[in-house]
Simulated assay, not measured.
Amino acid sequence: MVAPHPYRTCKEKAMRQSIEREMLEVLELFYYATSFQGRRFLCCFGPGAMVSEMLLDLRLLNRARLEVCLLAPGLDPAHLPPGYPVVPVGNPRELEQALKKGLMPLLPSAAGGLMEHAFALAKTFKVSRILWLGQEPGLLCGGKLQSFLDLGELKALVEGEESMNFDREFLGALWRELEHSKQEWVFVEAKSGALFQEVFTHQGCGTLVARSYQKSITQAQVSDLLDVMLLMRPYAKSGVILPVGEEQLAQEIGNYWVYRLGGSIVVTARTRVLGDWVELGKFCSLPRYQGKGRARELVAKIAEEMAAQGAKFLFALTVEPKMGTFFERMGFEQVDRETLPKAWAQGYDFSRPSVAYRLTLQSK
């Protein structure tokens, strides 16, 4: 039997890994596209926003069979590329017919405020999410992008004094509209790729404004496997965490904890019991929902549960300095990796430039 040539073996392995990465990317696209099935979008083009910048994004949403309506004052469909799937409609019946044909309905414009008109159309045409396409990357407060705001947070910003890139009167009107409607609102920059990132990736793009979502912290179930896998994927890709295969994840899914917001998993972490010690690993969160204390809530819940089960120490390792700061603020102290349990050290790659943190648990 002839052994395979080493070069060929390495080349085939690299190709297989490349294909697997591509399949995961496609899986993510399908996952987020199907999660929006049955929900209707209204793409509202604000002042200065050009439909011509978004043609590829809109076509992609259309080909994914998402129900997308357009509100673009001054747009003449005749000026779009030949065969582009946009058709003017004037009433709900025409809109439903257009959507059944796989077209994007162009809704009628009106004099007066564009935002108010968008909400009126959203109610008439049963739209669940309004995408405000403008010249800004999202809502900036004090120069910092606000990825997600509930209505209470939006109201606080409107009543506050920090500088913002949107007029307070406009944002106040938005808060009042959202308070009396069921729609969600997203500020998205009108540039190629922005809608794609907002709809088809875990990162999102811009600022989502919505009512407060119900939250819960539980141990993961088998049905959460795909959500957890996709949440961890960019962290593994960048080297922040070590990758976990689907088979291994399925075997360990009961050791994962998840923070749900409105039914979606936005933070996850894995626990591994080693005698009196518990390792906290695979700590990942959706970028859109960071900075609001949700990761702290998850760690606090895990620490409480582990202490109740008799554990004395919770420890974590990270290669990211900002995560080290996070752990220290949670009461962890930096320790030498050699002081961690021997059962953990046996399978660890000490060439990895990680820093260890330990939390002494308080038993009740």
Rank of each mutant, 00 (worst) to 15 (best):
C69K: 11
D276Q: 13
N165T: 09
G324D: 09
G138M: 07
E116I: 05
K191L: 13
E153Q: 12
Q197D: 10
E198K: 04
K100F: 12
V2T: 14
P234N: 04
L114K: 07
L99I: 12
Y7K: 14
F327A: 02
G172L: 06
Y84I: 07
E333M: 04
V86K: 05
Q309F: 10
L95T: 12
V335M: 13
E328P: 00
R294M: 14
C205F: 10
A173N: 14
A300R: 06
T339I: 10
Y7A: 15
L261C: 13
A122N: 07
C141G: 07
F148V: 04
E328D: 01
V267D: 07
Y7R: 14
H5Q: 09
C44H: 02
L140E: 11
M232I: 06
L131T: 06
A33K: 05
P321K: 05
E159N: 07
L61Y: 03
A250T: 01
Y357L: 04
V355D: 02
T271I: 14
R270V: 02
V355Q: 12
C44V: 15
M115S: 04
L131A: 06
F119T: 05
G90H: 09
V188S: 06
S363G: 11
P77A: 07
W185D: 00
L145A: 03
L29R: 10
T268V: 07
P108N: 04
T207E: 08
R233N: 03
V127G: 04
V267A: 11
Y357W: 10
W257Q: 01
T34G: 03
R39I: 04
W277M: 05
W185F: 15
E159T: 08
